Computed example of a mutant assay.
Amino acid sequence: MTPTDAQRATAWQVQSLLLGYPDEPWFARLPLLRAATGTVPAPLAVPLDAFLDHVAATSPTDLAADYVATFDHRKRFSPYLTYFAYGDTRKRGMALLRFKHAYRAAGLELDDGELPDHLAVVLEFAATGDPATGLRLLGEHRAGLELIRLGLREAGSPWAHVLESVSATLPPLGRHEHEAIARLIAEGPPEEEVGLAPFAPPEHMPQPRGGPR
C-alpha cells in the first residue's frame, strides 16, 4: 500500500522525533507518537511499533546510554547525511550550505545547535516544511541512509527499526543506488580532514521565521 502524502508526512514527523536524544520531553511524547503510528500503513508503522515496544521494555538510563554509544561515538552510524557522501572534506561544507538554502527557500530558519543535514532535521523539514524538497534531499543521500540502516541492523540496534520505516517512505532502490551503496560499503566516505566552520556553522531544527513553533 502506497502511503498518502499526509501519511508519509506523519511517519516522517514520528521518525524525526524518535531519532532525537531520549530525554524527559522525548519520553513524554511517546503516547502521542504511538497513536500517530497507528494512522500510517503497515510498512511504515510496524518498524516504529517494534522500536516503541523496545523503548517500553528498556530503562530510560539504558536507552540514553545506548543512544550516545550508537550515534555519538560511532561514525558508522553518523546521522549526518553528507558525511557519507563527502566525508570531512570541503565539498561537505558546500553540501551543508545547500541544505541550509533549501530550508530558507521554504521560508524556514534554523536555530543554533545542529547541522542541517542531521537526519532528524531533514525528516522534520520533509514533514512540516517542503515535502517535495525533503523527499529530494533524502533521495540524494539514499546511499548514506541505507548504509546507516544496514549497519544498525547488523549491530542489532533498536534504532534500525526507525531507519527501516524511513526507507519504507522512499521509492524502491534503483540499480545506480545499489551500486552507490556497494561502493560506499567498500570504500567508505572520502578522506580529507579540513575545518568545516567557515562553510557551515551549527544549525538546528527548521523553525518558521519569527520564532519557534
Rank of each mutant, 00 (worst) to 15 (best):
S167W: 09
V166P: 06
G151A: 00
R136D: 03
L163Q: 03
G144S: 07
S165Y: 11
L150R: 10
L137H: 02
I148A: 05
V162N: 04
L147W: 02
L138K: 09
W159K: 07
P171C: 12
L150H: 07
G156D: 13
L138Q: 11
A132D: 15
L145H: 04
T133L: 13
W159V: 02
W159D: 03
L163V: 03
G139D: 11
L145Q: 10
R136V: 04
R149I: 00
R149W: 03
R142P: 01
L147Y: 00
L170H: 07
I148T: 08
E146K: 05
A160H: 07
R149F: 06
R136T: 11
W159P: 03
L170I: 14
A168I: 14
G134L: 05
V166G: 07
L152V: 11
E154W: 12
L135E: 15
I148V: 12
L137W: 03
T133N: 02
S165P: 09
L152T: 04
G139R: 13
L150I: 06
E164H: 10
G134F: 03
L145E: 09
R142M: 02
P158E: 08
L135A: 15
E164S: 15
G156V: 14
L138W: 12
R142W: 11
L150P: 01
T169P: 07
G151R: 03
H161V: 02
A160S: 15
L147F: 02
H141L: 00
A160M: 06
L150V: 08
G151I: 02
G156L: 10
R142G: 08
T133A: 13
L163T: 02
H161D: 13
L135R: 15
W159S: 06
L150Q: 09
G156F: 05
E140H: 01
E146P: 01
G134A: 10
G144V: 00
S165D: 10
T133H: 08
G156C: 14
E164M: 15
L152Q: 07
V162H: 04
A143Q: 01
A168G: 05
T133S: 04
L145N: 00
R153E: 13
P171V: 13
A132V: 06
G156K: 12
A143I: 00
W159Q: 07
R149G: 01
L147Q: 04
S167N: 08
I148R: 04
E140R: 11
T169Y: 09
H161L: 05
E164R: 12
